[in-house]
Amino acid sequence: MDRDFIKEIISLVKGSDIKSLSIETEGLRIHIETYQKEYPQRAEVHREIKHVEILPPSEEATQEKHLHVIKSPLVGTFYRSPSPGAPPFVEVDDIVSPGQVLCIIEALKVMNEIESDVRGRVVKILVENGETVEYGQPLFLIDTSV
């Protein structure tokens, strides 16, 4: 995050009714608080920056760096297993490898196998079996730090 971006955020907050703003991006947290200066003789109110705090990345943000998102490459119906009654391809906490099938997305009566592109542990399955998914929709969270 560069200085110009931070200055732009500060000026936007200064010119608005925002009293407090926190931003967390790329492992960096910024917290800005404002207060009002009143000048009764001119009936004007000026907003001034009271406090700007740039904090080290939170543990959660650091942990998220190790999470890889597997996204849907197409629109269709999400299936966790190869057929009804069959066990799912993967479960939460399973270790997966690149090329391993994670699910199937049915589109136009074609069954498309969705494979992992990383090695890691399945942290979360973000879609329910039989649910319609959109292009680019997150399907799985994979922890690549294992």
Rank of each mutant, 00 (worst) to 15 (best):
H68I: 11
I104H: 00
K50V: 07
V123I: 08
K109R: 08
G130A: 03
S72K: 00
E38W: 01
C103M: 12
Q137W: 06
H51M: 08
E8S: 09
R3S: 15
I95N: 10
P40W: 05
K65W: 00
V101M: 10
D143A: 11
L67F: 10
K50E: 13
V13W: 02
D93C: 13
V75Y: 06
D94Q: 05
I95S: 04
R42K: 12
Y39E: 15
L28I: 13
P84S: 02
G85L: 09
E60T: 15
Q63E: 15
I114K: 09
G130Y: 02
S20P: 10
P84A: 05
S97R: 15
E91K: 15
E8D: 13
A107Q: 03
L139D: 00
I49D: 00
G27C: 02
D143L: 07
I95C: 06
I49V: 14
V92Y: 08
F140I: 14
L139P: 03
T25V: 12
I10L: 15
F78H: 03
P98C: 02
E33F: 02
T25I: 11
E128P: 03
R3H: 11
Y35H: 12
V69R: 09
I95D: 14
E8N: 15
L12K: 09
T62V: 14
V122R: 13
R42P: 15
R29Y: 10
I18G: 00
K71D: 02
S116C: 05
P138M: 07
T62C: 13
I10Y: 06
Y39R: 05
I32P: 01
L28R: 07
V45I: 14
D17G: 07
Y39A: 14
V133G: 04
G130M: 05
E38A: 12
I70V: 13
K14Y: 08
P73H: 07
I6V: 14
D2K: 13
R47Q: 11
R42V: 10
I23F: 06
G136R: 08
F78I: 01
L141M: 14
S145T: 14
I105E: 02
K65Y: 02
E128M: 11
K50H: 09
E24F: 09
K65G: 13
K14A: 08
V146F: 14
E115C: 10
T62F: 14
I10W: 08
D2H: 11
